[in-house]
Design a protein around this nucleic acid. Sequence first.
DNA 1: TAATATCCTACCAAATTAGTAGGCAAATTT
DNA 2: AAATTTGCCTACTAATTTGGTAGGATATTA
Lengths: 138, 138
Amino acid sequence: MLSRKTQYAFRALTCLAENYGKGPILISHISEEKKIPLKFLENILNELKKADMLESKKGKGGGYMLKVSPKKINLAKVIRIINGPIALLPCVSLNFYEKCVDCDEKHCGLRKMMTITRDATLKILEKRTLHDILFAGH
Amino acid sequence: MLSRKTQYAFRALTCLAENYGKGPILISHISEEKKIPLKFLENILNELKKADMLESKKGKGGGYMLKVSPKKINLAKVIRIINGPIALLPCVSLNFYEKCVDCDEKHCGLRKMMTITRDATLKILEKRTLHDILFAGH
DNA sequence: TAATATCCTACCAAATTAGTAGGCAAATTT
DNA sequence: AAATTTGCCTACTAATTTGGTAGGATATTA
């Protein structure tokens, strides 16, 4: 399951996607509109910025904005930044690979099943974008 | 990601699947062969038994065994017993549904994306079985 | 320089994870 | 019947993760 933090991230990004092209949006605005604890949201947006998904402006008239179009931000990317691996096992993860202890990967049947699962999941999460979330919402 | 406990469960079940039809297998045997901490494994096997996936016998000649053929135990079932929900959001889970706070499900775009993802994942995890794990292993 | 925002460091409580310890209960064997 | 073998049950614990909060530093604008 995705952490609550990741759900918050998606909500915040949806808000920024809705306002794409309209200049910086205040954290406090997103916090109120999407009912996300303000200080927690600060952390989240900052992480997304460090991962190069957002840009920010300080001072009056400041806030956050998407760095690229909502159509170019896929769901897998967001999940990887805030939540971590998408695969069900570390030994199957493309971006967070870790070797399992006491497991011969070449002959691990479980690993093969989880690889298939990962591919099916990624096929969807890497194709759908923030724009799709907006569009599916009505 | 699946918990380590769930990985242990799969390893143990694989061992029991390999020995299906050969009578009870000792916890201690599984523990050694699959390198799983004995007492922890006890808990795991007991949970699987309570979920009606295994049967057990006490005393000499005792141990655990699969209640049905490895071909009839799919991966989704194991995950749900030991790990919990398979869906990425609680509001999308079929077996562990929980309402999200401040979210209108009818018009939640994220929910729709996660429903599609869940369906793709389940299509695989509910079709593959312990037998497939064995078979894929060589 | 005052006001407005984000940024940064550090802390905290609650929940979850990954076990361990020790004895009880039921079979089986002697 | 007693001893042995094996799973069953309850409880505890340490480490990690999750979901935040507090307070000030820093940058921008007016």
